[in-house]
């Protein structure tokens, strides 16, 4: 794979890294080999799309970034901190993980409670919690929805609130799992703008190649638990044979 980023090459370039995954392997307790020897680096503020067919291991990889899953071998480094039992709490505060189904992400009775959950569990003082909630909701254009109940919101609104629930933790990195799934064109538009606006480094899994084209300069193709390609989206998306091989659509 000529497109694979060679680790030696990038260590030469003095780029501050937001995420550094080294030779990560993961096997689910039932024996499924979900990830093999994944190495991946994401620079500060870099936006990376994670694509690949169903079952490729995208969600599994994202879950490693904040230590919900712990790799069988290899290591995960966030900023300058390597993930371990001792650092897991700080790392969880740095990596904002947004799950695919907003009904899993929004588990509190009100929008306010949900957006406040992260900051409260980081042990922040209450005044700051309130201020962060207001700020995060403003970021996703949902100010004024504090007292609404998640089940009274549209899918698109729920997705934005889901992003707000992690923005309120001021993460350095966002890990989003299929954020555009199930959105109508307008809600999708809003999401694209939101992702473009956010300054954080992000790793976003998606099946939506137009989203990749519109937001992400770089993309990683995952297939059967391995990185199959990693490079500028423009080039990869132009390579019809490559897309064909991994069952991806042209945008």
């Amino acid at each position: 794979m000529s497109l694979l980023l060679e680790p030696e090459l990038t260590t030469i370039a003095p780029v501050a890294l937001a995420v550094h995954v080294r030779n990560l392997c993961y096997r689910y307790p039932d024996g499924t080999e979900a990830l093999h020897d994944i190495s991946l680096q994401i620079g500060e503020g870099e936006k990376v799309a994670l694509v690949g067919p169903n079952g490729a291991g995208k969600s599994t990889l994202l879950l490693h970034l904040n230590g919900v899953l712990r790799c069988t071998s290899g290591s995960v480094q966030i900023g300058s901190t390597t993930l371990s039992d001792a650092t897991i709490r700080t790392i969880r505060a740095q990596v904002g993980m947004v799950f695919q189904d907003p009904d899993d992400q929004l588990f509190s009775p009100t929008v306010f409670d949900d957006v406040a959950f992260g900051p409260l569990h980081m042990g922040l003082p209450e005044a700051e919690v309130r201020q962060r909630v207001a700020w995060a909701l403003e970021q996703v254009d949902m100010a004024g929805f504090e007292r609404r109940m998640p089940h009274h919101l549209s899918v698109g609104q729920r997705k934005r609130i889901a992003v707000a629930t992690v923005l309120s933790m001021h993460p350095a990195i966002l890990a989003l799992d299929e954020p555009s799934a199930g959105l109508d064109p307008r809600a999708r538009r809003g999401l694209v703008e939101l992702l473009n606006r956010l300054p954080q480094a992000m790793l976003v899994s998606t099946h939506d190649m137009r989203l990749v084209q519109e937001v992400f300069p770089r993309m990683v193709i995952l297939a059967q638990g391995r990185i199959a390609a990693d490079g500028p989206s423009r080039e990869l998306l132009a390579d019809g044979a490559l897309l064909e091989q991994y069952g991806l659509e042209r945008p």
Partner: peptide
């Protein structure tokens, strides 16, 4: 299964067994 996904979502946001709320 949903409760397990919720638990993971809670963990990701710093849950450690105690539910914190505003006073």
């Amino acid at each position: 299964e949903r409760s397990e996904r919720i638990y993971v979502a809670m963990l990701s946001r710093g849950y450690n067994g105690n539910m914190h709320t505003l006073t």
